[in-house]
Amino acid sequence: MMIAPLSKHPGEGDVIVRFDRIRKSFGDKTILDGVSFDVRKGEVFFVIGGSGVGKSVTIKHLVGLLRPDAGDVWFDGVEVSRLTEEEFFPVRKRVAMVFQYATLFDSMNCLENIALPLEKHRGLSRGAALVEAQRLLERVHLGRYGERFPGELGDGMKKRVAIARALTLNPEVILFDEPTTSLDPVSARRVDTLIRELSDTLGVTAIVVSHDLTSIFGIADRIVMLYRGGVRAVGDRAHFRETKDEVVRQFVGGFADGPMEFG
């Protein structure tokens, strides 16, 4: 597999996240074999590819939930992949993550879920934290559901509560792991709209792992496609629509027949 160092591109100053030749194996199974790409400040950046190609694995490196076997992860000019767990906390306050299954805490209601990081990191009292949590919940259009427990909500609502929780620390970057997978089309578009809104109004950089074609061509500024452990294509929506690469064409066209291999 080819491992090429990143070339300097003109907008170097705008780069906030850089993955540089990341390698990662689980047991004897190599998932990432030299993945490199940049994400620019304020954009909605999609990471796409087939199931099991390592999209989620890639982005989890940025918040230190996984550590690379080789390669560097840069966040805002600092190499973070070799920080200790404690040293990672400042990074995690600036980079929030919304997990695939929302991962709200079952034992707390929605408001308490959102209030937890506020109490822990902003030093708010419980009352003040709950008020702030209510404000954030309204921001994701779920103001009425604060007292509900995660088990009582649909998947789409859970995702939005998780997004509200991710907003608590005013992050600069939010990672979305398959935000629209397993949602019905309407809930999925609501989540898409929300992600676009956050980027446009708050200037948040969104890194979205997805294979939902509607999301990709609806809200992405730029896209990277991972394939067989490496980067197959990077570019904006137009680039992906007009590409001559048969593998990319097959994926974005959603065709059953073609050159793509599946693990």
């Binding site: 918040v63 767990e85 400042p90 995690r92 991962t103 805490f105 079952d106 929780r165």
Partner: peptide, 22 residues
């Protein structure tokens, strides 16, 4: 164990909350 397999523990870490302490 449930919190680990449903990624709730990773969720805590991603919120910069130390799972051991909390």
């Amino acid at each position: 164990g449930t919190m680990v397999v449903t990624e709730q523990v990773d969720g805590l870490r991603a919120l910069a909350i130390d799972p051991i302490a909390y």
